[in-house]
Design a protein around this nucleic acid. Structure first.
Length: 304
DNA sequence: TACCAGGAGAGCG
DNA sequence: CGCTCTCATGGT
Protein backbone atom coordinates (compact mmCIF):
# COMPACT_ATOMS: atom_id res chain seq x y z
CA UNK A 1 0.00 0.00 0.00
CA UNK A 2 1.49 3.27 -1.10
CA UNK A 3 1.82 6.25 1.19
CA UNK A 4 -0.07 9.25 -0.18
CA UNK A 5 0.14 12.69 1.33
CA UNK A 6 -0.95 16.23 0.52
CA UNK A 7 1.49 18.39 -1.36
CA UNK A 8 3.44 21.15 0.35
CA UNK A 9 5.28 23.79 -1.59
CA UNK A 10 7.78 26.54 -0.94
CA UNK A 11 9.85 28.94 -2.99
CA UNK A 12 13.38 29.99 -2.11
CA UNK A 13 14.31 33.41 -3.42
CA UNK A 14 17.83 33.16 -4.70
CA UNK A 15 19.66 35.22 -7.27
CA UNK A 16 21.65 32.76 -9.29
CA UNK A 17 21.02 29.08 -8.79
CA UNK A 18 21.82 26.72 -11.66
CA UNK A 19 19.81 23.75 -10.50
CA UNK A 20 20.73 21.55 -13.47
CA UNK A 21 24.44 22.04 -12.98
CA UNK A 22 24.34 21.77 -9.21
CA UNK A 23 22.34 18.54 -9.11
CA UNK A 24 24.13 16.81 -11.97
CA UNK A 25 27.76 17.84 -11.50
CA UNK A 26 28.81 14.90 -9.35
CA UNK A 27 28.50 16.12 -5.78
CA UNK A 28 25.17 14.36 -5.13
CA UNK A 29 23.93 11.27 -6.91
CA UNK A 30 20.33 10.80 -5.83
CA UNK A 31 18.62 13.33 -8.10
CA UNK A 32 16.79 12.51 -11.29
CA UNK A 33 15.77 14.95 -13.95
CA UNK A 34 12.19 14.51 -15.08
CA UNK A 35 10.90 15.03 -18.61
CA UNK A 36 9.26 18.29 -17.52
CA UNK A 37 12.63 19.68 -16.46
CA UNK A 38 12.09 19.37 -12.71
CA UNK A 39 14.31 17.32 -10.42
CA UNK A 40 13.14 14.69 -7.96
CA UNK A 41 15.10 13.15 -5.15
CA UNK A 42 15.21 12.79 -1.40
CA UNK A 43 16.70 14.99 1.30
CA UNK A 44 16.98 13.52 4.79
CA UNK A 45 14.59 10.80 3.71
CA UNK A 46 11.96 13.21 2.41
CA UNK A 47 10.81 13.17 -1.18
CA UNK A 48 11.43 16.50 -2.91
CA UNK A 49 10.69 17.97 -6.30
CA UNK A 50 12.68 21.03 -7.34
CA UNK A 51 11.88 23.45 -10.11
CA UNK A 52 14.06 26.26 -11.34
CA UNK A 53 12.54 29.66 -11.98
CA UNK A 54 13.97 33.13 -12.59
CA UNK A 55 15.15 34.40 -9.22
CA UNK A 56 13.97 31.40 -7.26
CA UNK A 57 13.97 27.66 -6.71
CA UNK A 58 10.54 26.16 -6.10
CA UNK A 59 10.22 23.05 -3.96
CA UNK A 60 7.48 20.54 -3.37
CA UNK A 61 7.31 17.72 -0.87
CA UNK A 62 4.78 15.55 0.88
CA UNK A 63 2.99 17.67 3.41
CA UNK A 64 2.23 18.88 5.87
CA UNK A 65 5.55 20.65 6.42
CA UNK A 66 6.09 22.94 9.39
CA UNK A 67 9.29 24.53 8.19
CA UNK A 68 11.72 24.40 5.28
CA UNK A 69 15.04 25.16 6.94
CA UNK A 70 16.26 21.60 6.26
CA UNK A 71 15.89 22.08 2.52
CA UNK A 72 17.20 25.62 2.48
CA UNK A 73 20.26 24.31 4.30
CA UNK A 74 20.69 21.42 1.88
CA UNK A 75 20.46 23.74 -1.10
CA UNK A 76 22.62 26.39 0.60
CA UNK A 77 20.17 28.87 -0.84
CA UNK A 78 21.29 31.73 1.38
CA UNK A 79 24.91 31.65 0.32
CA UNK A 80 26.01 34.99 -1.12
CA UNK A 81 27.37 33.70 -4.40
CA UNK A 82 28.71 37.07 -5.50
CA UNK A 83 30.82 37.25 -2.37
CA UNK A 84 32.14 33.75 -3.03
CA UNK A 85 33.07 34.69 -6.59
CA UNK A 86 34.74 37.85 -5.35
CA UNK A 87 37.01 35.77 -3.13
CA UNK A 88 38.36 33.75 -6.05
CA UNK A 89 41.76 34.55 -7.56
CA UNK A 90 41.48 36.98 -10.46
CA UNK A 91 43.17 34.79 -13.02
CA UNK A 92 41.91 33.81 -16.43
CA UNK A 93 41.19 30.11 -15.81
CA UNK A 94 39.14 30.96 -12.74
CA UNK A 95 37.26 33.70 -14.54
CA UNK A 96 36.43 31.37 -17.42
CA UNK A 97 35.26 28.62 -15.08
CA UNK A 98 32.88 30.97 -13.27
CA UNK A 99 31.66 32.58 -16.48
CA UNK A 100 30.94 29.15 -17.91
CA UNK A 101 28.49 28.30 -15.15
CA UNK A 102 27.89 31.29 -12.86
CA UNK A 103 25.03 29.66 -10.95
CA UNK A 104 26.85 26.53 -9.84
CA UNK A 105 26.37 25.90 -6.11
CA UNK A 106 27.64 23.64 -3.38
CA UNK A 107 25.07 21.50 -1.58
CA UNK A 108 25.26 20.60 2.11
CA UNK A 109 24.58 16.89 2.25
CA UNK A 110 24.09 14.48 5.11
CA UNK A 111 27.48 13.03 6.12
CA UNK A 112 26.47 9.37 5.91
CA UNK A 113 24.90 9.59 2.48
CA UNK A 114 27.84 11.61 1.20
CA UNK A 115 30.44 9.31 2.73
CA UNK A 116 28.77 6.17 1.45
CA UNK A 117 28.16 7.61 -2.00
CA UNK A 118 31.77 8.64 -2.46
CA UNK A 119 33.06 5.27 -1.25
CA UNK A 120 31.13 4.01 -4.27
CA UNK A 121 32.69 6.63 -6.52
CA UNK A 122 36.27 5.40 -6.76
CA UNK A 123 37.22 4.75 -10.39
CA UNK A 124 33.60 4.98 -11.43
CA UNK A 125 32.02 7.40 -13.88
CA UNK A 126 29.41 9.76 -12.49
CA UNK A 127 26.59 8.19 -14.52
CA UNK A 128 27.52 4.85 -13.06
CA UNK A 129 27.70 6.11 -9.49
CA UNK A 130 24.20 7.46 -9.92
CA UNK A 131 23.00 4.07 -11.05
CA UNK A 132 24.56 2.27 -8.10
CA UNK A 133 23.10 4.78 -5.66
CA UNK A 134 19.69 4.47 -7.28
CA UNK A 135 19.80 0.67 -6.96
CA UNK A 136 20.82 0.94 -3.31
CA UNK A 137 18.00 3.34 -2.52
CA UNK A 138 15.35 1.39 -4.41
CA UNK A 139 16.30 -1.91 -2.81
CA UNK A 140 17.24 -0.90 0.72
CA UNK A 141 16.15 2.70 1.29
CA UNK A 142 13.05 3.61 3.24
CA UNK A 143 10.13 4.59 1.02
CA UNK A 144 9.49 8.29 1.39
CA UNK A 145 5.94 9.65 1.54
CA UNK A 146 5.04 11.15 -1.82
CA UNK A 147 2.13 13.33 -2.90
CA UNK A 148 -0.58 11.28 -4.56
CA UNK A 149 0.16 10.58 -8.18
CA UNK A 150 3.92 10.79 -7.78
CA UNK A 151 6.27 7.90 -8.41
CA UNK A 152 7.63 6.33 -5.22
CA UNK A 153 10.85 7.73 -3.81
CA UNK A 154 13.39 6.14 -1.52
CA UNK A 155 15.80 7.67 0.94
CA UNK A 156 19.43 6.67 1.13
CA UNK A 157 19.74 3.58 3.35
CA UNK A 158 21.25 4.27 6.75
CA UNK A 159 24.41 2.66 8.11
CA UNK A 160 22.53 0.09 10.18
CA UNK A 161 20.64 -1.11 7.11
CA UNK A 162 23.77 -1.46 5.00
CA UNK A 163 25.73 -3.02 7.86
CA UNK A 164 23.11 -5.73 8.06
CA UNK A 165 23.46 -6.73 4.43
CA UNK A 166 25.68 -9.44 3.03
CA UNK A 167 28.51 -8.33 0.80
CA UNK A 168 26.86 -10.23 -2.04
CA UNK A 169 23.72 -8.10 -1.71
CA UNK A 170 25.81 -4.98 -2.07
CA UNK A 171 27.72 -6.40 -5.01
CA UNK A 172 24.38 -7.07 -6.66
CA UNK A 173 23.97 -3.30 -6.78
CA UNK A 174 26.86 -3.20 -9.30
CA UNK A 175 29.42 -1.73 -6.92
CA UNK A 176 32.06 -4.43 -7.35
CA UNK A 177 35.02 -4.41 -4.98
CA UNK A 178 33.65 -1.32 -3.23
CA UNK A 179 31.07 -3.54 -1.52
CA UNK A 180 33.46 -4.61 1.21
CA UNK A 181 34.53 -1.02 1.87
CA UNK A 182 30.95 0.17 2.12
CA UNK A 183 29.93 -2.69 4.38
CA UNK A 184 32.87 -2.28 6.75
CA UNK A 185 32.42 1.48 6.93
CA UNK A 186 28.73 0.98 7.63
CA UNK A 187 29.66 -1.42 10.45
CA UNK A 188 32.08 1.12 11.92
CA UNK A 189 29.53 3.94 11.81
CA UNK A 190 26.82 1.67 13.16
CA UNK A 191 29.05 0.66 16.07
CA UNK A 192 29.59 4.30 17.10
CA UNK A 193 26.38 6.21 16.58
CA UNK A 194 27.80 9.67 17.29
CA UNK A 195 30.94 9.31 15.23
CA UNK A 196 29.89 11.28 12.15
CA UNK A 197 28.47 14.05 14.34
CA UNK A 198 31.68 14.33 16.31
CA UNK A 199 33.70 14.62 13.12
CA UNK A 200 31.68 17.77 12.39
CA UNK A 201 33.23 19.37 15.47
CA UNK A 202 36.84 18.59 14.60
CA UNK A 203 39.29 20.94 12.88
CA UNK A 204 39.66 20.02 9.24
CA UNK A 205 42.96 18.09 9.50
CA UNK A 206 41.64 15.95 12.35
CA UNK A 207 38.32 15.47 10.58
CA UNK A 208 40.19 14.36 7.47
CA UNK A 209 42.18 11.86 9.51
CA UNK A 210 39.01 10.50 11.06
CA UNK A 211 37.47 10.02 7.62
CA UNK A 212 40.49 8.33 6.07
CA UNK A 213 40.39 5.85 8.93
CA UNK A 214 37.34 4.30 7.27
CA UNK A 215 38.14 1.52 4.83
CA UNK A 216 37.90 2.68 1.24
CA UNK A 217 38.32 6.33 2.20
CA UNK A 218 41.56 7.98 1.13
CA UNK A 219 42.51 11.65 0.78
CA UNK A 220 40.30 12.38 -2.21
CA UNK A 221 37.08 10.86 -0.89
CA UNK A 222 37.73 12.42 2.53
CA UNK A 223 38.02 15.83 0.89
CA UNK A 224 34.76 15.29 -0.97
CA UNK A 225 32.96 14.50 2.28
CA UNK A 226 34.60 17.43 4.04
CA UNK A 227 33.49 19.78 1.28
CA UNK A 228 30.08 18.44 0.32
CA UNK A 229 28.81 17.33 3.73
CA UNK A 230 30.81 19.13 6.40
CA UNK A 231 31.05 22.45 4.58
CA UNK A 232 34.82 22.75 4.82
CA UNK A 233 35.73 25.26 2.16
CA UNK A 234 39.41 24.50 2.61
CA UNK A 235 38.93 20.95 1.36
CA UNK A 236 40.01 20.62 -2.27
CA UNK A 237 39.34 17.19 -3.79
CA UNK A 238 42.08 16.28 -6.26
CA UNK A 239 40.74 13.66 -8.62
CA UNK A 240 41.86 12.72 -12.10
CA UNK A 241 39.88 15.57 -13.66
CA UNK A 242 41.30 18.18 -11.31
CA UNK A 243 44.85 16.94 -11.71
CA UNK A 244 44.51 17.25 -15.47
CA UNK A 245 42.72 20.61 -15.28
CA UNK A 246 45.16 22.23 -12.85
CA UNK A 247 48.06 20.98 -14.91
CA UNK A 248 46.60 22.23 -18.19
CA UNK A 249 45.43 25.57 -16.83
CA UNK A 250 48.19 26.58 -14.46
CA UNK A 251 51.25 24.52 -15.44
CA UNK A 252 50.95 24.21 -19.20
CA UNK A 253 54.68 24.22 -19.94
CA UNK A 254 55.62 21.00 -18.23
CA UNK A 255 53.80 18.48 -16.14
CA UNK A 256 53.74 19.50 -12.49
CA UNK A 257 54.24 16.76 -9.93
CA UNK A 258 51.22 15.85 -7.85
CA UNK A 259 52.68 17.30 -4.69
CA UNK A 260 53.21 20.61 -6.47
CA UNK A 261 49.54 20.62 -7.50
CA UNK A 262 48.55 19.87 -3.92
CA UNK A 263 50.48 22.84 -2.56
CA UNK A 264 49.15 25.06 -5.33
CA UNK A 265 45.57 24.04 -4.58
CA UNK A 266 46.04 24.75 -0.89
CA UNK A 267 47.42 28.23 -1.38
CA UNK A 268 46.16 29.73 -4.63
CA UNK A 269 42.38 29.70 -4.41
CA UNK A 270 41.66 31.60 -1.22
CA UNK A 271 39.17 31.01 1.59
CA UNK A 272 36.60 29.34 -0.69
CA UNK A 273 39.03 27.01 -2.42
CA UNK A 274 36.63 24.09 -2.38
CA UNK A 275 33.99 26.17 -4.10
CA UNK A 276 36.54 27.20 -6.70
CA UNK A 277 37.42 23.55 -7.16
CA UNK A 278 33.85 22.75 -8.12
CA UNK A 279 33.79 25.47 -10.77
CA UNK A 280 37.01 24.25 -12.32
CA UNK A 281 35.91 20.63 -12.14
CA UNK A 282 32.60 21.36 -13.81
CA UNK A 283 34.18 23.58 -16.44
CA UNK A 284 36.77 20.96 -17.35
CA UNK A 285 34.12 18.28 -17.68
CA UNK A 286 31.91 20.49 -19.78
CA UNK A 287 34.76 21.29 -22.17
CA UNK A 288 35.31 17.56 -22.50
CA UNK A 289 31.63 17.03 -23.22
CA UNK A 290 30.94 15.11 -20.03
CA UNK A 291 28.62 17.49 -18.22
CA UNK A 292 24.90 16.93 -18.70
CA UNK A 293 23.68 20.49 -18.62
CA UNK A 294 23.68 22.68 -21.66
CA UNK A 295 24.93 21.86 -25.11
CA UNK A 296 28.12 19.94 -24.66
CA UNK A 297 30.82 20.84 -27.12
CA UNK A 298 33.05 17.78 -27.40
CA UNK A 299 36.58 19.10 -27.29
CA UNK A 300 38.94 16.16 -27.03
CA UNK A 301 41.90 17.35 -25.05
CA UNK A 302 45.24 15.74 -25.40
CA UNK A 303 47.96 16.11 -22.84
CA UNK A 304 51.16 14.53 -24.10
C1' DT B 1 37.88 -3.46 -28.93
C1' DA B 2 40.78 -1.13 -25.99
C1' DC B 3 40.97 2.22 -22.56
C1' DC B 4 39.17 4.66 -18.81
C1' DA B 5 36.37 5.96 -14.74
C1' DG B 6 35.37 12.34 -9.14
C1' DG B 7 40.77 5.93 -5.78
C1' DA B 8 42.34 3.16 -2.27
C1' DG B 9 45.06 -0.44 -0.23
C1' DA B 10 48.43 -3.97 -0.23
C1' DG B 11 52.89 -5.58 -1.48
C1' DC B 12 57.14 -4.59 -2.84
C1' DG B 13 62.36 -2.75 -2.86
C1' DC C 1 59.03 6.18 1.56
C1' DG C 2 57.52 5.83 -3.50
C1' DC C 3 56.35 2.73 -6.88
C1' DT C 4 53.26 -0.90 -9.05
C1' DC C 5 49.48 -4.01 -9.10
C1' DT C 6 44.85 -5.21 -8.27
C1' DC C 7 40.20 -4.61 -7.32
C1' DA C 8 34.58 -5.03 -10.63
C1' DT C 9 32.06 -3.29 -13.96
C1' DG C 10 30.09 -0.35 -17.41
C1' DG C 11 30.79 3.97 -20.62
C1' DT C 12 32.75 5.84 -24.52
Amino acid sequence: MRTAAPIASCSFLVERYDLDATLSCGQAFNWEKQPDGTWTGTVSGRWVRLRSAPGSVAAETAGPVAEWAWLEHYLQARVDLAAVHASFPADEPMRAAVAGCPGLRLLRQEPWECLASFILSSTKQIVQIRRIVRLLCERYGAPAPVPSGEAPGFGFPGPSVLAGLAEADLRACQMGFRARYLRETALAVEADAGLLDRIALLPTPEARAALTAFPGVGPKIADCVLLFAYGRQDAFPLDVWMIRALGDLYFPKRRAPLDRLRRFAATHFGPNAGFAQQYIFHHARRLAGRADSGAAAPTPRTTP
